[in-house]
């Protein structure tokens, strides 16, 4: 029941969260001067469970569900009003084995986020990221007279820039709540041709080889510049943290929703829901 609801309506969840957050930012960011901050540096880790509802129209007629682990690592510096984060994210999920083929997904990337305080609780700014969504469909149990024909792979890669915002609210007894969103505006996306996994540029040059020489170079040449009508990678997270220790380290839980969408000849949609254990280790000198 929950899966069905997520497949049908879940794609709107991060978008709804984004809109809500932007509305909150707009409603509360009125003429309140940001506070001055001392320079702080911290290392964040997020480890936990990820659920994906994904569909690649050239490989499947349906959304499939995959479950697995997610690991994110980030380094953050807070310098006065500026807040910069550079980080890596990676997840690995598998679908159930009720189908003739089962998918192993790898979803990872790198990001840089730069925001400024416009209010004591609110930061807005931009981000840049690069990532890849790779699916390996294992269908080794399908056999025909001439072999094992079902196994294949597909991929989508992107590099994007966009807007980001976060809202932080201190609760009682060292607890805090934070809420952040990222919304891409412009992206360079790489996605293979309609029914082939060869990079687009590899097939456009008028030559072809089963040897696949030069395929890596052609992979990077195959991209297109896209905007939000053809590419979306919205991420929203809600986090509750508790400060501890003399250096104000933090530990808590994070819920993260994301919606990755590639339009065009080979559409891809991937809705992710994650529950992550979060730690923020403050490495600044006291």
């Amino acid at each position: 029941m929950i899966n069905q609801l997520l497949r049908l309506y879940g794609r709107w969840l991060p978008i709804a969260l984004t809109s809500t957050c932007l509305a909150v930012v707009a409603a509360t960011a009125q003429n309140t001067p940001p506070p001055a901050h001392a320079k702080k540096r911290s290392i964040e880790t997020h480890i936990g469970y990820q659920n994906q509802q994904f569909k690649e129209t050239q490989q499947s007629s349906i959304f499939r569900q995959a479950n697995g682990i997610s690991i994110n690592v980030a380094y953050t510096t807070v310098n006065g009003e500026r807040n910069q984060t550079i980080g890596l994210y990676y997840s690995q999920t598998k679908t159930d084995k009720n189908f003739a083929s089962f998918a192993n997904n790898k979803f990872g990337g790198i990001f840089y986020n730069h925001v400024r305080a416009i209010h004591k609780n609110i930061h807005v700014g931009g981000y840049a990221d690069a990532g890849v969504f790779y699916t390996y469909r294992d269908a080794s149990r399908i056999t025909t007279l001439w072999g094992e024909p079902g196994t294949n792979f597909s991929y989508a890669a992107w590099s994007s820039v966009g807007l980001s915002a976060s809202f932080n609210h201190d609760l009682k007894k060292n607890w805090s709540l934070s809420y952040s969103v990222r919304l891409p505006l412009l992206a360079y996306t790489i996605r293979p041709f309609y029914v082939e996994n060869y990079p687009t540029a590899f097939l456009r040059d008028g030559r072809f080889s089963f040897n696949e020489e030069g395929i890596v170079k052609d992979f990077f040449k195959s991209g297109k510049v896209q905007s939000i009508n053809n590419f979306m990678n919205v991420q929203a997270s809600l986090e509750i943290l508790k400060r501890f220790g003399t250096r104000q380290h933090q530990i808590g839980l994070q819920y993260q929703a994301g919606y990755l969408f590639f339009n065009g000849l080979k559409p891809l949609a991937n809705l992710t829901n994650q529950i992550l254990l979060t730690t923020k280790i403050n490495i600044s000198k006291p």
Partner: peptide, 10 residues
């Protein structure tokens, strides 16, 4: 290329 049908066939 293989393609997954709604009932799990390929």
């Amino acid at each position: 290329l293989p393609y997954e049908l709604p009932n799990g066939w390929v």
